[in-house]
């Protein structure tokens, strides 16, 4: 195969042979690592959370799945159906950095970035999921709020569906989106009980939220700041009982001289 136009002398031919002998087989792990890095194959492991162990899959593009499958086989089968990509269990568990980032994110630290791999999601689904990412820890927003915020106020049902198909619950906190009537609503990661646990773990009382909604309270205003908020907005929660003014309709609050909060943007929740 090799051309020798230069008539290699024998002592150089020995060097040539020695160099050929330096060809080395790549380590067996190279193919797998490369495929994971470019996102053509995923790894997965279990992660302990407040709602118990969940399965987390990831590749070089980010976290690709979080589920509450009963066991590893069920998780793998579900992943392959949803993603049409190979997946294998990470021998060394979830990388320390990724686990820490997810936990810190759940703990409300918005400075850490957790990349998510949303390939295969429609632009609408991506918009919904990105919006859900903006909801701060310890606060909830109605489905109608998400719909209005992404400029599709009539698509409340579709927002619910998109959040129901959130491939990476916890990482994208779809548990912070609840029904407009105050009910906690459905949750894809192991059912609504987990949603209550997560919301409670973030310092909100799900029963209290539902009770308030049943009593017809959808907004809380302050008669000192004259700002009206969604009930779980941290601004609203700082208002002392004495200064709290509850409203069922935003228009009533505005008519009474209250300004919609710029942080929680309650106007969006009315739109539907």
């Amino acid at each position: 195969m090799t051309e020798y136009p230069e008539n290699l002398d024998p002592s150089l031919a020995r060097v040539d042979a020695a160099l050929r002998d330096l060809r080395t087989e790549a380590p067996a792990s190279l193919v797998g690592l490369t495929l994971v890095a470019v996102g053509l194959e995923d790894l997965y492991a279990q992660l302990d959370t407040v709602i118990g162990p969940v399965w987390v899959a990831w590749n070089g593009r980010g976290v690709s799945a979080v589920t509450a499958a009963a066991d590893a086989d069920a998780f793998e089968a579900g992943f392959r159906t949803d993603n049409k990509r190979p997946i294998r269990r990470a021998d060394e568990g979830i990388p320390e950095r990724l686990a820490t980032a997810i936990q810190r994110r759940l703990a409300g630290d918005r400075r850490v970035r957790v990349q998510v791999n949303l390939r295969g999601q429609t632009p609408f689904e991506k918009a919904v999921l990105r919006k859900a990412l903006e909801i701060p820890r310890g606060e909830v927003r109605p489905y109608s709020w998400v719909a209005a915020e992404i400029g599709r106020p009539a698509a409340v049902r579709a927002v619910g569906t998109a959040l129901g198909h959130n491939p990476v619950p916890l990482v994208i906190p779809c548990h912070r989106v609840v029904r407009s009537d105050g009910h906690i609503g459905q949750y894809s990661l192991g059912g609504p009980a987990n949603k209550r646990t997560l919301i409670a773990a973030e310092g909100l009382a799900p029963d209290g939220l539902e009770e308030m909604a049943r009593a017809g309270v959808r907004y809380i205003a302050s008669d000192t700041t004259h700002v009206v908020c969604l009930p779980s907005c941290h601004q609203a929660r700082r208002v002392t009982d004495r200064h709290r003014v509850p409203f069922g309709r935003l228009s009533d609050a505005v008519a009474a001289g209250f300004r919609p909060c710029r942080k929680c943007r309650p106007a969006a929740a009315v739109a539907a």
Binding site: R23, T24, A26, P27, V31, T34
Partner: peptide
Amino acid sequence: VRAHQDRVY
């Protein structure tokens, strides 16, 4: 990757 991994490595 399979075809070229040994030489790239």
